[in-house]
């Protein structure tokens, strides 16, 4: 059974003459442990696709099955639970809570789970250590550099220990060196069995992935599988 199954997905915004069709009948299947990049020009619908896969948005038409469950019919509570337990996100501008510390940001997905404070602390400490930012634990995220912020965002995605990691232009706000480090981290996570989907318009970033899906005007233009370059 595929991890992600999208069948004839449509997404439209606005009404009547102001309607914009972001996705036009997208079919996509993603298996466990895949490392995919979704590429396309601006406005092609790649971010919309990622939002639908991440259960942050619902399709106007079509069926989305995640782990065999049709999530298009689920309510806010169930979608929230799926987002918490199955999917993690990494965003271009990090999406960190500015007035919170590194620890509080990383621990965010865990507060929703039935874990003791001790367990949360242990998990967070483990991933902060792994990413080499344990010394920043008590620092406010607003005082960190771009690279450090992205590491915090990665730690938050890792600590959730979800099957899927969705990244929207994750290297967009980073310099080349930090961008490369980040992609190496994704490769490492993928080797550990995570399914990673990266939205990018950068061929270099896409070259780290094993499958490249190209979207043009809301439709899948090509879907190429191969080995990492």
């Amino acid at each position: 059974m595929a991890l992600i199954e999208l069948e004839n997905i449509y997404k439209t915004y606005g009404e009547d003459e102001y309607t914009t069709v972001a996705l036009k009948g997208v079919d996509l299947t993603v298996d466990n442990g895949e490392f995919i990049s979704i590429m396309g020009p601006s406005g092609s619908g790649k971010s919309t696709l990622l939002n639908i896969i991440g259960c942050m948005d619902v399709p106007t038409k079509g069926v989305y099955r995640l782990d065999g469950v049709n999530v298009t019919t689920l309510r806010d509570k169930e979608l929230s639970r799926i987002r918490n337990q199955k999917i993690s996100f990494v965003f271009q501008h990090f999406a960190l809570m500015h007035h919170f510390t590194v620890f509080e940001n990383v621990a965010l997905p865990l507060w929703k789970r039935e874990l003791s404070k001790k367990e949360i602390k242990e998990k967070v400490d483990h991933y902060l250590e792994k990413l080499g930012i344990a010394h920043l634990k008590k620092k406010n995220v607003s005082k960190l550099s771009g690279g450090q912020k992205q590491r915090v965002a990665i730690a938050r995605a890792m600590v959730a220990e979800t099957d899927i990691v969705l990244a929207d232009e994750p290297t967009g706000a980073l310099d080349q060196e930090n961008g490369a480090r980040l992609m190496e981290l994704f490769c490492q996570m993928n080797e550990e069995g995570k399914c990673i989907i990266v939205i990018t318009h950068d061929e270099k970033v896409a070259s780290y992935t094993k499958r490249i899906v190209r979207i043009v005007d809301g439709q899948i233009h090509s879907d190429t599988k191969g080995e990492r370059q």
Partner: peptide, 13 residues
């Protein structure tokens, strides 16, 4: 922004 992030990481309404 904070509420949006919390929702993305599994907080319901």
């Amino acid at each position: 922004y904070e509420i949006g992030i919390k929702k993305a990481f599994g907080y319901s309404n």
